[in-house]
Design a protein around this nucleic acid. Structure first.
Length: 402
RNA sequence: GGCGGCGUAGCCAAGUGGCAAGGCGGAGGUCUGCAAAACCUCUAUUCAUCGGUUCGAAUCCGAUCGCCGCCUCCA
């Protein structure tokens, strides 16, 4: 039985999809205002391993990953660079897709853009206005948290304990909200030249969380299986998604919430804001091969924080070389005494190892494909045993040559 | 101030009650004209600290110290 650590409950829960044999996943995707850095890709590689592993386990996977192509940073950039929204976001979306391919990340089944789902978002806001969970103020529309029971369930936050603006990251005086904890659904334009849409709920653009609710429900249904994202999104993003989605439908939103921990560098999270980030392109230009980056990002389980270092990257590259050597040796090896080919003997052991394994620590999906090692010294007569954590369907390091 | 996570060898890291996986690095060796590569062997009596529970604890409980993350548009 596959189990996941569900942020919603904090428990390790057996995974039972809504529909047998099929998994519906919504994964929070990139905001295409600039290059994505390898911290971002830690999460995207996690999604990739998750979908590959689920498929390996026999599930049909439908993954929706949004492309946020309108938000504050994008708007600021378009004004600064005198580009249209489409020019800027198309450019960086293309770079992102290239980077995904470089790191051998499979493309999700659906990659919807926020700007192409304005009508769906407007409809959602209209529902919330109609049932009293949203209100208008100064041309913007806000979600009324006091009208939604269960706010804070995902993040475990109690509003009393929180201090508005404590993170120092946001301007809490920016909006005319009735309650500081309310969040914006629809934003009236503020800047000169800011992109906006004329709609039935007014002129403006969607708030951060709205696209994820509208698009996940459109492509996956009002209730779906897995919602994944970086740990930073637990609050407020995912908390607010739940509020506005369940506030509108009255039905449970996502059933399993999976959050990946951050990539740190010099013991601080990698972030554009801190200027301490590296992009895959930066590393490639230093002669680092793409699969070494992927290997490094998978060297800790997805729920474990990973510290990025040059040594770590070197170690990943060395490990990868050794792994490839191992594969080459299997291919060149002779058949075993019972007539089985070495490659199939290895595959069989991997298959046998996995079911017993995930029954215990299934949430280690990020790690599931991390460790294929020869164990020749333990069993000299059978030189092809492989650590059970690898899996053939898993393609451990996503290396096509392997 | 509130909430959450983590602390295992020089470095990265697995392990959630029954003698401490693995990788990198390092040391020694085999092969090789030399070198490199490859391959082989070795590399934690001990799991931040202190108490407790137990026949048995890295694993469970309590306290302490240290680090990290979130606290309203960050993957």
């Amino acid at each position: 039985m596959l189990r996941f650590r569900n942020t919603l409950t904090g428990e390790l829960e057996p995974f039972i999809p809504l529909e047998e044999g099929r998994v519906r996943i919504y994964a929070c995707g990139p905001t295409v205002w600039n290059f994505a850095h390898i911290g971002n890709f830690k999460t995207f590689v996690f999604y990739d391993v998750l979908r590959r592993y689920l498929r390996f386990r026999g599930f049909e996977v439908t993954e929706v990953m949004n492309v946020t192509d309108v938000d504050d940073r994008i708007i600021e950039q378009t004004i600064e660079l005198k580009l249209s929204l489409e020019e800027l976001t198309t450019k960086y979306l293309n770079y992102f897709l290239e980077d995904m391919a470089t790191l051998n990340i499979e493309q999700p089944e659906v990659m919807p853009k926020a700007t192409e789902h304005i009508p769906e978002m407007v409809a959602l806001v209209e529902t919330l206005l109609a049932n009293g969970k949203a209100y208008e103020a100064d041309g913007s529309i806000y979600f009324k948290i006091s009208a939604f029971d269960g706010y804070g369930r995902l993040s475990g936050k109690k509003l009393e304990g929180n201090e508005a603006g404590r993170s120092g990251r946001v301007d809490t005086q920016e909006y005319a909200k009735a309650d500081t904890s309310d969040f914006v659904l629809w934003k009236a334009p503020k800047l000169e030249g800011e992109r906006s849409w004329d709609t039935a709920i007014g002129t403006g653009r969607p708030g951060w969380h709205l696209e994820c609710s509208a698009m996940s429900m459109k492509y996956l249904g009002e209730t779906f299986d897995i919602h994944a994202g970086g740990e930073d999104l637990i609050f407020p993003h995912h908390e607010n998604e739940i509020a506005q989605s369940e506030g509108a439908t009255g039905k449970p939103f996502a059933r399993y919430w999976l959050h990946s921990k951050f990539l740190n560098i010099e013991n601080q999270k990698m972030s554009k804001r801190f200027g301490n980030f590296k992009t895959p392109r930066d590393l490639l230009s230093q002669g680092i091969e793409p699969m070494a980056i992927r290997y490094l990002l998978l060297s800790a389980p997805y729920r474990t924080q990973l510290n990025f270092t040059a040594d770590g990257l070197d170690a990943a590259a060395s490990s990868l070389d050794r792994l490839r050597n191992f594969v080459r040796r299997i291919r060149n090896a002779h058949v075993t005494s019972n007539g089985e080919s070495p490659a199939s003997a290895v595959a069989k052991r991997m298959l046998e190892g996995i079911p017993g394994r995930d029954g215990r620590r299934p949430e280690h999906v990020g790690r599931a494909c991390g460790g294929v090692q020869p164990r020749e010294r333990r069993e000299p007569d059978d030189r092809c045993e492989v650590d059970h954590r690898g899996g053939p369907g898993c393609d451990p390091v996503g290396d096509r040559s392997g």
